[in-house]
């Protein structure tokens, strides 16, 4: 603030208030008392460490005790923590109390200078830079300048290229699952094939595609293949003829992987026949081919066409006709 402004101020600066002495500054008894308080705090810290060692060595790790508020809790872990907390906390309290009562509390004034350097220093700095650049002669030797530019521009390629092997290209991976025409639906967990009669009306089951013997199911597969089977009364469906033909005796199958961000759509409300994703609350109507009726999801859950094979087990009639899971740039969502 400039000095002229200061003159227009309604009140002039009264300056630093007079220093007020603390009781510990003037009364030796008070100072002695503060000294004792500080040493008590440090002693409490030492007791905390002793509690910590005691808990570590002598309280068995599986001791459960009942404490009001905490219910049943593990005593080993609790007293270990309380001991550590005491040991640390009281060192801090002691030091702060010491500083506040016994160390000098005279406020001191220090002066600032503007961050900006003096004009001659700035000029000298600019001159040094210019001088240095002139000595390097970059301006006079365009060949060096250009070839250096080329080299620096290209050198960044190596580290980027080195990252290439972080992973394979997606290719058509995101559009494919392990469901093929005729793949049996098996329970998850359990890997047992299912007959329509295994699922009551109102029932829900999580299934995976049956794998040939010897092939191991990885989490990557589950992240793509998980399917939810839901059985309702056939007359409750509100589907077009094609989608109705994808169901079997009231059993309808949807990808369990949310079309929004890929969470497992696990909450089924039997009375309303709604599926709810617990991550972002997208809600899908089972009777209308998992149409989105609420929340941020923009697409229905993909439906899997199902039927039964000769032995009466549920099988996929065809693979999913669209990519499952969240959207991506190259997804054909027409």
């Amino acid at each position: 603030m400039s000095e002229t402004n200061r003159e227009l101020e309604p009140l002039s600066d009264p300056g630093l208030p007079e220093h007020v002495h603390r009781k510990t500054d003037v009364d030796p008894l008070a100072a002695k008392k503060a000294e004792r308080q500080v040493s008590i705090l440090f002693t409490l810290s030492a007791l905390g460490t002793i509690l910590f060692v005691y808990a570590y060595v002598w309280i068995p790790e599986d001791t459960l005790i009942f404490l009001p508020l905490f219910n049943v809790t593990n005593a080993h872990q609790l007293f270990l923590g309380l001991g550590l907390a005491m040991a640390l906390f009281f060192i801090g309290m002691g030091a702060v109390h010491w500083a506040k009562t016994l160390m000098p509390d005279h406020e001191v004034v220090d002066y600032r200078k503007e961050q900006r350097s003096k004009d001659e220093d700035r000029a000298a700095f600019v001159a040094t830079v210019k001088d240095g650049a002139a000595q390097a002669g970059l301006g006079r030797r365009p060949l060096i300048k250009r070839s250096l530019g080329l080299a620096l521009g290209l050198v960044g390629i190596s580290p980027i290229l080195l990252l290439r092997d972080l992973g394979p290209l997606p290719e058509n991976d995101l559009n494919e699952t392990n469901w093929k025409a005729g793949t049996r639906l098996v329970t998850d967990p359990g890997d047992r094939p299912i007959r329509p009669s295994d699922l009551e009306v109102g029932g829900v089951a999580q299934v995976q595609p049956e794998f040939p013997a010897g092939k191991v199911r990885h989490l990557d597969d589950i992240a793509q293949d998980s399917v939810l089977l839901i059985r309702i009364r056939p007359e409750e469906f509100n589907l077009d003829a094609e989608r109705l033909s994808w169901t079997y005796e009231g059993i309808i199958a949807f990808s369990k992987i949310c079309s929004h961000m890929g969470c497992a759509v696990a909450l089924y409300e039997q009375t309303t026949k709604h599926l709810l994703c617990p991550c972002h609350q997208s809600t899908f109507d089972v009777t209308r081919a998992a149409k989105v009726i609420f929340g941020p999801a923009a697409r229905p859950l993909p439906q899997l066409a199902i039927t039964v094979d000769n032995e009466g087990y549920l099988v996929a009639k065809a693979p999913f006709n669209e990519a499952v899971g969240p959207s991506f740039w190259g997804r054909d969502s027409q």
């Binding site: 923590g81 309380l82 040991a87 060192i91 801090g92 702060v96 010491w98 500083a99």
Partner: peptide
């Protein structure tokens, strides 16, 4: 003393929460 002490206070409170 104040800042050093305050470190121990913060650590102590965190340890208490952890316990």
């Amino acid at each position: 003393a104040k800042a050093g002490g305050f470190f121990f206070i913060v650590f102590g409170v965190t340890a208490f929460l952890g316990a």
